[in-house]
């Protein structure tokens, strides 16, 4: 226990926690991004994938969500505490009158602000597509049409694309420095040259951003509802809806019309 406490209290310990949780989240976003791209295959494919995650993976999904949630919390708490330490290490008012960064990347200098933007995005994103809190008229099973509806709204698309820019920067510095923090990287003569991480950050951000953009510019069109979902599941969900959320049905219609424009 003492060991764990010492480890958490030391700055390297906290950095290791950030690195490990960060790498878990990198793994997650890569998987998530690949899953998303099914939107270009067909509505049925994407919906079936959503159904597979929810029902076939089932309970294990909650375990995964637990790990992800814990990772995010640890990552954020460690980041906040380290930021406080850093602020104490050179208190404001005792800083330089003139300071010129020599080699640090824009990504590294903005990692904290970018992180907060991503955190806000994650919260929004969960409320948007997972809990459906923002637009309760979305179907819990028709992932495809939810996506299409979602990204036909300009500011939503803009926000998602902006967040993916932040994600690219966050990955470009974070994924690279995670390996260094864990001491796993090979010595490098020039730390600014990091081709693998550059490719990773670029592909992930692009892979994510292409979906909202494709929807927004009409490359992905709405499809017939609830494709790819087993009939019995639909029935079950319909039962649930009529029983549990009577208001849901009334809001569905206007949004759909809106989305149709």
């Amino acid at each position: 226990m003492q060991l764990v406490r010492n480890f958490w209290q030391s700055q390297i310990g906290k950095k290791v926690v950030m690195a490990v949780t960060g790498l878990i989240l990198v793994g997650f976003v890569v998987g998530h991004m690949v899953g998303n791209l099914q939107v270009f295959q067909s509505a049925a494919k994407l919906n079936a994938y959503g159904y597979f995650l929810k029902h076939t993976v089932g309970g294990a999904l909650w375990a995964v969500r637990g790990v992800l949630l814990a990772s995010v919390i640890l990552h954020v708490v460690a980041a906040v505490q380290l930021t406080r330490q850093k602020q104490a290490a050179r208190p404001s008012g005792q800083g330089y009158q003139k300071y010129e960064p020599q080699i640090s990347t824009f990504a590294s200098r903005t990692i904290r602000w970018g992180g907060f933007l991503l955190l806000a995005f994650i919260v929004f994103h969960i409320l948007h597509f997972t809990t459906l809190t923002i637009y309760p008229d979305y179907s819990p099973t028709d992932v495809y049409n939810n996506v299409v509806k979602g990204f036909q709204i300009p500011w939503v698309t803009a926000f998602y694309v902006l967040a993916m820019g932040a994600l690219a920067l966050h990955l470009f510095h974070g994924a690279w420095s995670s390996l260094r923090t864990l001491g796993l990287s090979r010595p490098a003569a020039r730390p600014t040259a990091r081709p693998i991480v550059t490719a990773l950050a670029g592909l992930v951000a692009l892979g994510f951003a292409v979906v909202p953009l494709a929807v927004f510019f009409g490359a992905v069109q709405p499809a017939a509802p609830e494709q790819g979902i087993p009939a019995e599941a639909l029935e079950a969900s319909a039962l649930q809806q009529s029983a549990g959320a009577p208001a849901g049905a009334s809001t569905t219609a206007p949004t759909s019309t809106l989305a149709g424009h």
Binding site: K15, Q85, T105, S108
Partner: peptide
Amino acid sequence: VEQMDIEGFGHCTLYGE
């Protein structure tokens, strides 16, 4: 490393500066 913390230095963000 413990002493480095006690002295009140900040952590490493691998800026490279």
